[in-house]
Design a protein around this nucleic acid. Structure first.
Lengths: 343, 343
DNA sequence: TTGTACGCGTTATCAA
DNA sequence: TTGATAACGCGTACAA
């Protein structure tokens, strides 16, 4: 008894059942016009051989689709993107599509390679969190009319569907809450303006100040913290000013945590707000306002946009790109019910 | 000018370049025996048509491999599994393999379906975090000799490679540290014993007590908390005993955070240790011992085991299953340098 | 009801 | 150096 080198094929099943490959194919596809007798014989052979249909060959015969959706993210270790992936997987799975993963680590070269490879594998569509500013390699037309949806960051110099978080609205609303609770000199801890979220969240912060008739003190703004440690240092710097801010809005959770540490260490008690909710936000023991949203929903919506494109007739005229904005909600942990009296 | 319905094929390129499909194939594969002239003509046609080789058809012709690794996890939203996925992607990517994703949500039925579908797609191998206790559907032989590696949980009634975290050793070491810091009546907050990690971490806890000559007080053990809130409630219950524990070992981060909240609220100050490090562990402001490890390394090792199997000659005899255990390290946040005097 | 011939896009083999 | 032919595993059209 020799070891099976490769999986049995439809022909093997046919030979064993004493019928033609075509008959086996029909049985497997539940074709109606098959005798119960032959049907049983075929199924018995299938069982005996452990036969499993080769979906690759099947798809090749059926057309160009691979039944795969390519998902390219910048950093899967970031819970934001892994939840996004989960949302994509859920919606794609409903249609029988599987998700192929690519991680770029914010490397544009790697993104280009991944996109090329996915196109070569004839994925049905692509969902991309773009790493760089130039998206010209992501145009649907340049990829053989492959449907493309951008996630978390907007298309810069191309036309493409995209799904975004309401970075601006969330930052504005959270800042407004800070102000409603009495802040009159809020500071900002954030990301470089070159990052989409960095600029949008800063814009929201500024607009909220403006709407409240407050003016921004540039000395309270620090924008290059990518770790909790650097965020803490930046917050401490700002807090040591002769007239420190009475609140912080932080553009992401690392800055929020850094600010939290700085505040815990210092004597003052500025109010704190930040973008991104996290599991232990209510554990910190300090009043905190966070901007929450559902990353999984981002993935679901991206997948839906993509499926819409995939379902279109290939010959149909290109429809205009769509943009979906995922709403944010502001959550207050341990804040006083009564807003403090404004100065 | 009519819209291209489907991507151009090798034949299209051949026609445009005025050569045979075979010649185009050779050019694309950098076959040496091609004239520079024809080579240029072909490449020009490739460029003009935006041709991209169909890897699906190529793989079909070349053999059974799809160049895909199936990764089946229980919950991608859990950072542990998304980091695992990242590790798998990194190692698989080095070999030019892509990763297809499947999320089971701990549903065994879904796991079975996913594994079947991946096998039908002729993935080169499978890495699975098994959801249930019965793994009979994951035997390599039953899947057409498809290589299978289990991750995070050991094979129960089958022979298969696997990669595990040192749950036992980590729990034992962290508990020993608690004891070294003066604990003599530690409590345990954890998961049901039915979960692999639940039983292993509890075992480590018990052995550490035993080695220190301490006896376990069953009243200090709570084992069914799956959320921070229930963990907090359980910890409060135990703390309200007439003679409460002087320390807690928590089997995962949710229990650690629940215990943290309970401790913050109560007057007593039991020492705290827990499995799983988390980004803000050092932000909590309470002394804390955590068991840390690298989930990404788990993924990398799983991928390496899988590649080993894939690289073997198909006819070769089955080699015995291998088991790799990822080491843990114990980290102390804000613990006193001098261990307290033991009673 | 079942089988034959051919094609999907690519490559190995052999001939020209 | 290049091209014709067959084949990978499967499905459709048509014939038997």
């Amino acid at each position: 008894m020799s070891a099976e080198q490769s999986p049995p094929t439809l022909r093997d099943v046919a030979a064993r059942a004493g019928v033609s490959p075509m008959t086996v194919s029909r049985v497997l596809r539940d074709h109606p016009r098959v005798t119960e007798r032959t049907r049983e014989r075929v199924l018995a052979a299938v069982d005996a051989l452990g036969y499993r249909r080769n979906e690759l060959a099947r798809n090749l015969r059926l057309g160009r689709t691979s039944g795969l959706v390519g998902l390219v993210v910048t950093n899967l270790a970031n819970p934001f993107y892994s939840q996004l992936a989960l949302g994509v997987e859920a919606i794609a799975g409903e249609r029988g599509l599987k998700v192929v993963l690519g991680n770029t680590a914010e490397d544009v070269q790697r993104e280009r390679r991944l996109v090329e490879e996915f196109a070569a594998r004839r994925v049905d569509g692509l969902i991309v969190v773009p790493a760089g500013a130039d998206h010209s390699h992501l145009t649907s037309s340049r990829l053989g009319r492959l449907p493309v949806v951008l996630a978390a960051r907007p298309p810069s110099n191309i036309a493409a569907d995209c799904v975004l978080v309401d970075d601006f609205g969330g930052a504005r609303e959270a800042t407004a809450r800070l102000i409603a609770h009495g802040a009159i000199r809020p500071g900002f801890l954030g990301l470089p303006l070159s990052a989409w979220t960095g600029s949008e969240r800063f814009r929201g912060f500024c607009v909220a100040l403006d709407e409240a008739g407050l003016t921004l003190d540039e000395r309270y703004v620090r924008r290059n913290q990518r770790t909790i440690a650097t965020a803490e240092a930046a917050a401490l710097q700002v807090l040591s000013l002769p007239d420190p801010p009475d609140a912080f809005f932080c553009a992401n959770s690392r800055n929020t945590l850094g600010a939290f540490r700085a505040i815990s260490a210092s004597g003052s008690r500025p109010a704190l707000a930040g973008f991104d909710d996290f599991e232990m936000a209510d554990v910190l023991g300090l009043p905190l306002i966070v901007v929450a949203y559902d990353p999984e929903e981002l993935g679901r919506q991206a997948a839906r946009l993509l499926l819409d494109r995939i379902d279109r007739e290939p010959g149909a005229a290109d429809s205009p790109p769509r943009r979906i904005v995922i709403p944010t909600t502001v959550v207050e942990y341990g804040m006083a019910e009564q807003p403090a009296v404004r100065g």
